[in-house]
Simulated assay, not measured.
Amino acid sequence: MSNLRGRLDGAWWPCSRDLTQELSALADTLDPLWGRVTRIAINPLHWPPVPLKVPVSGHVVKVGRLTELDPHQILLSSYTAGRWDLLVIPPETSAPAAARLMAAASGSAHSATTASSLMAAEQALHGGSEAADRGRDREEKGAADGSGHFGRPGRTT
């Protein structure tokens, strides 16, 4: 179930490492936009602990731990729209770095780029010099609903 294609549909920038809260908010936001999220898969490397299920408005979403999945990626499934592969931007990332990563993950020029290669390129080009105040960065990120997600909702597989 790993993403051998390397294609990303966008990015997700959670506010914290509380995966139960963050995944619930993400699925709740995406349900009306992309169709009901039925399953989420994440590599547990950067996310201890990973919940087995998360509550979403009106239903529960199962969460899988896939060590073969890129550790900087999340996979969301839906009966309606298929599969989405999103780059996971760490919560502590500065707003300028997150904006660059979101643009790169959703840009058509990078459709064959893996999540880990985008994270490595960001680190190589900009290093850790942008570890700015997290509260200010979250206000500047530009997501009107505060969910921390960004992507291309139209792709299905």
Rank of each mutant, 00 (worst) to 15 (best):
D137L: 03
H149R: 10
Q73P: 03
V56H: 01
A115E: 09
S106C: 05
N43K: 01
A81S: 15
A95H: 09
G154V: 11
S108I: 09
P90G: 13
G128L: 12
H59Q: 08
S57V: 14
S77A: 10
H59M: 07
L118V: 04
R134Q: 14
H59Y: 02
R39K: 11
M102G: 13
K53P: 00
L23Q: 03
A132F: 14
L19D: 00
D18W: 02
A115H: 05
I42S: 03
D133T: 03
E22L: 07
R155G: 10
E68W: 05
D137M: 09
S111P: 03
D31C: 12
V88R: 03
A112R: 15
A115F: 06
V56F: 00
L86G: 01
S116I: 04
W47M: 07
S117E: 14
D9E: 06
L118E: 02
L66V: 07
S129F: 12
A143I: 14
A41N: 06
L86S: 00
P51G: 05
G135D: 15
L87K: 04
G128I: 08
P153K: 12
E92R: 13
E122L: 07
A121H: 12
L8K: 00
G58N: 02
I40E: 01
S117A: 10
P91K: 00
P71G: 02
P44I: 06
E122W: 04
G135P: 04
D145G: 06
A112L: 12
R83Y: 08
P32C: 05
P71N: 07
V63I: 09
W34M: 08
D9I: 03
E122V: 00
V63C: 06
G142A: 12
G107K: 04
G148E: 03
G135Y: 09
E140L: 15
L52H: 07
E140S: 15
G35D: 02
W12M: 00
L118F: 01
W47K: 03
A105S: 09
G10V: 01
M119Q: 11
G154P: 07
D18K: 05
V37F: 01
E92M: 05
G82L: 12
D28M: 03
V56P: 01
A121Q: 14
A143P: 08
N3G: 04
W47L: 12
D28L: 02
V88W: 01
S147P: 10
N43I: 03
A25C: 06
A11Q: 00
A103E: 08
G64W: 07
Y79Q: 11
Y79S: 11
F150D: 08
Q123E: 13
P49K: 07
D28K: 11
G35I: 05
H149I: 10
R155K: 13
E139V: 06
